[in-house]
Design a binder for these strands. Structure first.
Length: 261
DNA sequence: ATGCCCGGAACGTCCGGA
């Protein structure tokens, strides 16, 4: 089972890029973020024609997440538990072929002197609590998405440029580590332990893509039952380099073997 | 110091993004 995560920065603006990537990469499950539409606006028919089922948690203009899967999508959970007042569409969970997956759009948190930063940290506390609950099931689990966290300085093109940013603040990073240390595996880092310059996001501005000045903020976190089945894992830079209307993020994918060897 | 580049909403610019 090939599972990918991709922040598409509007599913409507990105539909041609998404369609061609689905046809080319043929993932079994895709975790999308920032679809920027309500469910009624999601191009379910077009994507369905490529053989995918869809589950959507939408929102007008901002945020919004979705799950695509070739196999049936079961036991859908909408929203991250822990705050009934939170209206932002940033979390959707489901089970596909016995693998529980979640698509996560973790708040960015900038600027750090605004309420957005404490919102990010509170949201991470809620994710910590929920991940703990899910891990207790002792099932294959993939928590994938745009975490808006560069875990270490190896994941940034230049730590000085990013110093103080919500993506790499020590308090952001320690909460991310706490979630990982519940017993999750960063699939990309497990497969490529020492690889620097492996980015998943490049800002549209300042020629960041052309200079290859990016950050690795999109992650696939695996429970031990999923990590036991981890095959290849990589970042596909091709969609980011497309000449017409690329997303500023590019897909990260991993393969889960059908059984233990 | 500020905008740069984008998408959405809307139709003039502004907000949000990372």
């Amino acid at each position: 089972m090939k599972i990918a995560t991709w922040n598409v920065n509007s599913i409507k603006a990105r539909l041609p890029r998404v369609m061609e990537w689905l046809a080319e990469a043929a993932p079994d499950v895709v975790l999308l973020q920032e679809i920027k539409t309500v469910a009624e606006g999601f191009p379910e028919t077009e994507i369905g024609d490529l053989g995918y089922n869809t589950a959507v948690l939408g929102q007008k203009s901002y945020n919004g997440v979705a799950i695509l899967a070739k196999r049936p999508i079961e036991d859908v959970v909408e929203g991250l538990p822990g705050d009934d007042e939170d209206e932002q569409a940033r979390y959707l969970e489901a089970v596909i072929d016995g693998v529980r997956v979640a698509t996560i759009y973790l708040p960015n948190g900038n600027p750090t002197d605004s309420p957005k930063f404490p919102y990010k940290l509170r949201w991470m506390d809620r994710l910590y609590d929920h991940a703990k609950t899910l891990l207790a099931y002792e099932e294959p689990l993939v928590l994938g998405g745009d975490y808006n966290i560069a875990p270490t300085d190896m994941d940034l093109f230049d730590p000085k440029v990013w110093e103080g940013d919500a993506l790499c603040r020590p308090d952001s990073r320690s909460k991310f580590r706490a979630i990982v240390h519940l017993g999750l595996t960063d699939a990309y880092r497990a497969r490529h332990p020492n690889k620097a310059g492996a980015y998943s996001f490049w800002d549209y501005q300042k020629g960041r893509w052309q200079r290859d000045e990016g950050v690795r903020i999109d992650h696939l976190l695996l429970s031990s039952q999923a990590a036991d089945r981890l095959g290849d894992c990589d970042i596909d830079r091709t969609p980011r380099g497309h000449s017409e209307k690329p997303s500023d993020h590019t897909p990260v994918w991993c393969e889960l073997r059908e059984s233990l060897e």
